[in-house]
Design a protein around this nucleic acid. Sequence first.
DNA 1: GTCTATACATTGATAGAC
DNA 2: GTCTATCAATGTATAGAC
Lengths: 188, 188
Amino acid sequence: MPWSPEHKQQTRDKILQSAAHLFTHNGFNKVSINQVMERAGLTRGAFYKHFNSKKELYSEAVVYGARRMTRDRLDREPDLDRILDLYLSEEHVNSVADACPLAFLVSDIALRDEESRQGYQQVLKGFIKRLAQSTGKDMETATIASILMVGGVALARAVDSPELIEQILNTAKAESKRQLLEAEDVVN
Amino acid sequence: MPWSPEHKQQTRDKILQSAAHLFTHNGFNKVSINQVMERAGLTRGAFYKHFNSKKELYSEAVVYGARRMTRDRLDREPDLDRILDLYLSEEHVNSVADACPLAFLVSDIALRDEESRQGYQQVLKGFIKRLAQSTGKDMETATIASILMVGGVALARAVDSPELIEQILNTAKAESKRQLLEAEDVVN
DNA sequence: GTCTATACATTGATAGAC
DNA sequence: GTCTATCAATGTATAGAC
């Protein structure tokens, strides 16, 4: 029975990790606390020693999942061209692994409470700013690219036809690369 | 008691209209059949004489709402510049009136059954094709503009800060207008 | 075709033993 | 801190009177 001082923190992290995965892929309503705890290797009853409500868990899990995604993907991949390939890929859209909550939950968040939306908002702001800084482009260009990336993945996830999915992803990929990676046009 | 032959059809339409509004603004799970029927001026029990399940209602309501939106807005407004102003406006994002299911439900649809996703997909295809035809641009340009429009409204709905909402909407508006309305660049 | 009443399942949250 | 047991609420779907 390892009741070491950091045991609770580790358990909390396992719950958050489980919740981030389940919520990102299934939204708020289709995930039960039971599922989250089972995936974390625990039972329902223990949940409320770590969080006050399902809403609170969701709010924290969205930020947790987004930050994890950022750290594991963006931070260790210096090549932005490759990041765009990965983000706007069928593997990401159909991912069984971790995915980007910004895209997967974009219209799930709109239905949640203020805490959840503000967490999402902070992550989105960081996402846009990071794109701007790493490319040297202005905030407007980074915003365009962000809408294309997040909107592209969200839209691709909403349809079935492989051709349409490919059309959406390839178009968003090409245009966001054009916006972010090509040299400034003298005409503009 | 007007049990005229078209009475059932009228009732069905009232249910669909109520459902389209409620589902578009609140997603599948936060809407109950009770709510839908109340808004249509009926009670729960009558529902199953018109539809077989909540899923079936949702599937039809999404298409119904999208087509209504298209007919009432796009068809009677010849000025595309003005259409973009209306679509990418705070009024649309915060609408209490009818809104575009393509944007409001983009990540709600991904969680539903195949029938719902295919309905959504047909509407989206029509949306892109219409943009291409009415501007004379190619499908790729129309796809970019669609992602910016749908993604822009969806993202704006996910955040709280008025400044960020404005930034997202204005950027998406300017870029989609540039894509759709400006003359071809000779350089490209 | 619409109503009221109800069966039945799910699930968020709490209580109490260990 | 984790477990089992349970409460209370919600909501889909069905049954049967009118």
